[in-house]
Design a protein around this nucleic acid. Structure first.
Lengths: 224, 224
DNA sequence: ACATTTTTTTAGTCAAATCTAATATTTTTT
DNA sequence: AAAAAATATTAGATTTGACTAAAAAAATGT
């Protein structure tokens, strides 16, 4: 196994995340932005990671992780997400308090520690945000998606996709402030027309029609 | 609260330990030795810590922690020892496996984390090696000491002091390889003369007379 | 008391990771 | 297609923590 510094691990994690979400080529500005550093520093680090065989890099043409880079990134994610589960389930952190601490803990190096922690937590497959936890060989389960329309009252989840991507629909979502990644909670279901009252991002309340809620796909959060 | 780098924290911890044990002035060589670095690096770091008000330092005259330094050191110890309890009690590490991992974990910064961890572990007063865990304000309980002579068969502990410090006695202890900090386990007690068969440091077996074992003070390890 | 040994400090390098300022390349606009 | 804007890279500086080699101070032995 290759050994990276905490700083290198942070770059790797961010590059992995950015290259997953967007198929677009990702640039030094994106990375610099995500990691609170300057583009010049990113250029330096990218060259270094390329030498280590973590990613392929051609000047002015963005980066793309190698298989080795992908595997390594998954292990960093694994460590961070296991800690997140620990912090929420055992130490009763709120799920928005875990990020900073997990970000420090994830750089601790000890295979035994993570094997034991995993076991202690009952081999969780998802972290408190619903993101999958890779196993030691980098495999993970996708969390099943359900229609917003099919959720029950009081259930909560995160919006992950839409099944209708017409401009009209997307424009509507934008207007009412519903976006990929937003947290939703079902407040009420109206029998008559199948419309829903939902809460978005723990704050705004909103009514959506059955047509709309049938085209929004959500990952449910674990209940407890 | 003052903020130190992991490296500074390591120096601080070692200086605290060395100045506790030995009343003698401790030198750059001692520190360099304990921390696997070179005396020259110690000189540099000492000057830096003096500037931060962690210790007093006069060229060629050793160091002595300020009150601020002592308080800060106790918090580092607290963090490391809480993790040691966690690793042994929850993740079932052997107590000789915890050191390296706890040494990484202790540099994680988050007051909330340690308050919650402390609570989760049931506010332990001692770590798995029997060392006391300071509370948030730096107070700790001394572990009671008992005579080696008074231990029962199969009990284990760590030698912490001797009540006879004559040269003859110390020379004897030296000769048979018994020293402050050594782990002992009672293997057998001889009714006839009160002598003991003990195991030192998980390896060597040794017989000691009643006179000897009455002058050796031990901290018992927790049974479980 | 002075020579030797040990300990401590200084001076000068080095590597990692960052930064700023300047330059180079690509993309977008007109 | 040239000018302007955005993005990426290099060059050079800085900080942190370490190192080696050499000088300085203190301790020790005879």
């Amino acid at each position: 196994m290759i050994s990276l510094s905490p700083s290198e691990e942070n770059y790797l994690k961010v590059i992995f995340r950015l290259t997953q979400n967007e198929a677009l080529p990702i640039g030094t500005n994106d990375i610099a932005n995500a990691i609170h550093t300057k583009p010049a520093s990113v250029s330096d680090m990218i060259r270094k990671l390329a030498v280590k065989g973590i990613l392929d890099y051609k000047k002015y043409h963005g980066v793309h992780l190698t298989e080795k880079g992908r595997k390594t990134a998954l292990q960093v994610l694994r460590r961070g997400r296991l800690w997140e589960v620990f912090l929420v389930e055992k130490l009763h952190f709120q799920w928005d308090q875990v990020h900073e601490v997990a970000g420090q803990l994830e750089h601790v190096r000890s295979p035994l520690l993570f094997r034991r922690l995993d076991e202690y937590l009952g081999f969780p497959k998802f972290d408190p945000h619903g993101d999958p936890i890779p196993d030691e060989s980098g495999e993970w389960q996708e969390k099943p998606k359900s229609k917003l329309q099919d959720m029950k009252i009081a259930e909560r989840g995160k919006i992950v996709t839409v099944s209708d991507s017409s401009a009209a629909f997307l424009r509507y979502l934008d207007k009412v402030g519903v976006y990929i990644g937003a947290k939703v909670e079902i407040l009420d279901k109206v029998e008559f027309d199948g419309s829903l009252e939902i809460r978005v991002d723990e704050s705004r309340k909103l009514f959506v029609s059955k047509e709309v809620s049938s085209n929004i796909l959500v990952q449910l959060f674990d209940v407890k």
